[in-house]
Design a protein around this nucleic acid. Structure first.
Length: 659
RNA sequence: GCCGAAGUAGCUCAGCUGGUAGAGCAACGCUCUCGUAAAGCGUAGGUCGUCGGUUCGAAUCCGAUCUUCGGCUCCA
């Protein structure tokens, strides 16, 4: 960069996001540009982006281009803010723990962290308030972030002197002439930047937790202490963030799941092996029925395959011994090795190969809710979302190369339909191969064609997508669906993957119109991914307040007193008759207690019956979280509730029946 | 697997520097027969995750181990 060049009389022109352009003398800084527009802009600006490169606001600019002055709401602004916060964290730690060695301290999606080698000192979350207080003190000093460039040689001797092996390791990968340092207060760090103008912008700081993290993410190298934190330009933003955290904590499926009777994990059965309780099973079977019906409508055939398979099957697929470390050890049966199945595909491939396939039969779409077992490391297990035994909503589509594009479209369409039912927005990522040919199997020519067709399919469906090079699986490119839940968190769920490798390995063929054998291509797809993981996300997405069609118990009948138990029973059987999951609460409790009980169990409908209802065959309806919605003729209510189930109405868009 | 934290009644939690466990809710029994988020009284319930050590004495101190939580690594 030539920004060190003293500004000449040259003029440079910037174009702003609104399309307007302005001309300034070369060497002008971002702050000065902001000031020329408004004082408030200058006060709140955090960084400036020129033609996709982000600069400090105090950096003299010598080339014009498209600029954005980044505020808190701009991604580039926020990243600079959190990056600068990480520097303050490091400054505070250096002040409190002299002699520590610093690793890296980047901004992340929500906040920042710094990896630090504390030597023999143990730092735990108990120490965070102290560090946090120091950070606040340093932030208040309003120290400027000063940038300077130095030679690689100087940088190396600086860190030799400080005896910091991590920074020296980082320096090795850097070119001379591109090395910059940033200094604020008493702290200097090797850093590419950019940073916010001064520490005073940071008004609220919270250190969240500590964790071990391997240097450079390599589990063979030393583990450093990572401190996570977040910071904001306003105290109120921190409060809102903490409130959001609290919300997420309340929705935690590990808490809500067992509480609502969805699942349990029992140490005698084994960790990572969840058991679906009756209510959870109802929920899961309802989800499965939903997807199964859609699949049948779309020409899938359902199959069922065993939970174990001969080791030979997995040698053929290549999964054994390649994934040996993440599988349960094979068992010996009559001199042969058997494996608890880690995926369903090989079984399905053998079903495909069971008969002679003609091009007229294709595509063959085999679907199975197939349970698989994988050995996950103990530290990885997490409620329902990371387990050792789970069920995939798996399917394999065997088709010709000419059918591929159409089939990809079908899969995308099904996946989108599924997520729209839950009102979950979806991001689409096309995961393609990168230049490292070593990583991939199958013919390059076929890959290129598949990637082309995936892209065409996405374009023809007017999808908005991102392309991620290097994210493909080893056997083919794929489309990943990343959904957003009600709290705005992102989860990668469904995938649609193209596979050229397995047809070769299993020698799968079909007879073409030319009477010659041809290779089919396989699409692996799973909209939910895994029933366990998807359920965990559903629980958190809805905070346990499931839409009526998914609720394990859809209604409870509450007689005002025991005198009306008979009426309650009669209503219950009529509701059950039309397929509603309903119970009558006939306990000798008071009505308020029964209602409270139903509310805490998140039962969508509470139907109160007493004298009035007995007289005119009506029902007083109370909705979960909404309260009393009035009285209905009972037979009228039957059709209302039936309709709500059939239409899969979501809790929020709920057109509450008017009394 | 690695770093850090935590495990007391079904649940939520109390139990100070060692003196052998306590509350609320839930459960069960009785009374109340009740109109939209907790009726009253009573009963029962714990070898304080497990094993070992220190001590006259351990929920409390030490060690090991298991499980869970927050991360790291991994994820066909």
């Amino acid at each position: 960069m030539s920004d060190q060049t003293i500004a000449t009389k040259k003029e440079i022109t910037f174009s702003f996001p609104d399309g307007s352009t302005r001309t300034y003398p070369s060497g002008i800084t971002g702050v000065e540009i902001a000031e020329s527009i408004s004082g408030r802009l200058a006060r709140e600006a955090l960084s400036i982006t020129v033609d996709n490169t982000v600069f400090d606001l105090h950096r003299p600019l010598t080339t014009g281009g498209k600029i954005t002055i980044n505020m808190w709401d701009d991604e580039d602004g926020k990243m600079a803010f959190w990056h600068s916060s990480a520097h303050i964290l490091a400054e505070a730690v250096e002040a409190l723990y002299p002699g520590v060695k610093l690793g890296i301290g980047p901004p992340i999606e929500q906040g920042f962290y710094y990896d630090i080698d504390f030597g023999d000192t143990h730092v735990s979350s108990d120490d965070l308030p102290k560090i946090e207080a120091k950070m606040v003190e340093l932030a208040r000093q309003k120290n400027q972030f000063e940038r300077f460039e130095i030679s690689k040689e100087e940088a190396i001797s600086h860190y030799r002197e400080k005896n910091d092996p991590y920074k020296l390791d980082l320096l090795e990968g850097l070119e001379d002439g591109t090395i910059s340092f940033y200094k604020q207060g008493n702290f200097t760090d090797l850093c590419r930047g950019p940073h916010i103008p001064d520490t005073g912008r940071i008004k609220a700081i919270k250190l969240l937790n500590t964790a071990g993290a391997y240097w450079r993410g390599d589990n063979a190298s030393k583990q450093l202490t990572r401190i996570y934190g977040i910071s904001f330009p306003k105290k109120s933003m921190l409060d809102a963030f903490l409130h959001q955290l609290e919300e997420a904590r309340k929705r935690d499926h590990k808490k809500l799941g067992p509480q609502l009777g969805i699942y349990m994990i029992d140490r005698m059965v084994g960790s990572g092996l969840p058991m679906w309780l009756p209510k959870g099973t109802t929920l899961r079977r309802t989800l499965e029925a939903f997807l199964r019906d859609e699949q049948i409508r779309r020409g899938y055939d359902e199959v069922i395959t065993p939970h174990i398979g001969n080791l030979e099957l997995y040698r053929t697929s290549g999964h054994y011994p390649y994934y040996k470390d993440s599988q349960f050890a094979p068992m010996q049966i009559d001199d042969e090795g058997y494996l608890l199945k880690p995926m369903n595909c090989p079984h399905h491939h053998r079903i495909y190969d069971n008969e002679m396939r003609s091009y007229r039969d294709l595509p063959v779409r085999l679907a199975e809710f197939g349970t698989v077992y994988r050995y996950e490391q103990t530290g990885e297990l997490n409620g329902l979302s990371r387990v050792r035994g789970f069920t995939q909503d798996d399917a394999h589509i065997y088709c010709t190369n000419d059918q591929l594009k159409q089939e990809i479209k079908h899969c995308i369409e099904l996946t989108q339909f599924v997520f729209s039912t839950f009102d979950m927005p979806v991001d689409i990522r096309l995961s393609f191969r990168d230049a490292n040919d070593e990583k991939y199997g199958g013919e390059r020519k076929l890959w290129d064609r598949a990637q082309q067709e995936i892209r065409e399919a996405a374009d023809e469906m007017d999808l908005v997508y991102k392309i991620a090079d290097g994210e493909a699986s080893f056997y083919g490119p794929k489309i990943d669906f990343i959904i957003h839940d009600a709290l705005g968190r992102k989860w990668q769920l469904g995938t649609v993957q193209v596979d050229y490798v397995m047809p070769e390995r299993f020698d799968l063929t079909y007879v073409g119109s030319d009477n010659q054998k041809h290779r089919p291509v396989i699409i692996h797809r799973a909209p939910f991914g895994s029933m366990e993981r998807f359920t965990s996300i559903l629980i958190e997405h809805f905070a346990g307040n499931f839409p009526l069609w998914l609720s394990p118990q859809q209604a409870v009948i509450i007689p005002v007193s025991e005198q009306f138990n008979e009426l309650a029973e009669s209503y219950r059987s009529q509701l059950q008759e039309i397929g509603i999951r309903v119970k009558a609460d006939l306990r000798g409790e008071q009505i308020g207690a029964k209602i409270r009980n139903a509310e805490t169990n998140k039962i969508p409908y509470m139907l109160i019956v007493g004298e009035k209802e007995k007289e005119n065959q009506s029902v007083s309806v109370r909705k979960h979280k909404k309260g009393d919605i009035g009285s209905f003729n009972f037979s009228e209510f039957l059709s209302i509730i039936k309709k709500e189930v059939d239409e899969k109405v979501l809790p929020d868009q709920d057109p509450a029946p008017q009394a």
